[in-house]
């Protein structure tokens, strides 16, 4: 049982790390967005594998809530991105400097 657990935990940590590296190093706002999705998915995998180990289905319920949050995040985030694009005509995050000084 423990071995099954460990392989899933390590896979999900690796996916989370890849998402974090992508978020910190890319400059295309859309790819940043997809990196966030990757991190959310890694957390989902970890929750499901913990739920399997504990034999407790609450973990799967939590995953469904994360689905709802991810859907809301995508809807609002992409709408913000589109209205930013209307102003700046670019998806380069280095050009989104309205709030910098």
């Amino acid at each position: 049982m423990g071995a099954i657990m460990d392989q899933y935990v390590i896979l999900s940590c690796l996916l989370f790390g890849i998402g974090a590296i992508g978020f910190l190093t890319r400059r295309n706002a859309l790819i940043l967005f997809m990196s966030v999705e990757l991190m959310l998915n890694a957390i989902n995998l970890m929750l499901v594998s913990f739920s399997h180990q504990r034999a407790d289905m609450s973990g799967q319920v939590m995953v469904l809530f994360i689905f709802a949050v991810a859907a809301a995040e995508v809807a609002v985030g992409l709408a913000i991105l589109i209205s930013l694009f209307k102003h700046i005509k670019s998806v380069d995050i280095n050009k989104f400097n309205l709030l910098k000084w």
């Binding site: 974090a20 910190l24 180990q53």
Partner: peptide, 24 residues
């Protein structure tokens, strides 16, 4: 930072996964 975060989560969560008892 990403590599550090990955290493940190692997170490931390592996510790947790040993604490969690496996149920049938």
């Amino acid at each position: 930072l990403g590599a550090y975060l990955t290493a940190l989560t692997v170490v931390g969560v592996k510790g947790i996964s040993e604490l969690i008892s496996a149920n049938e």
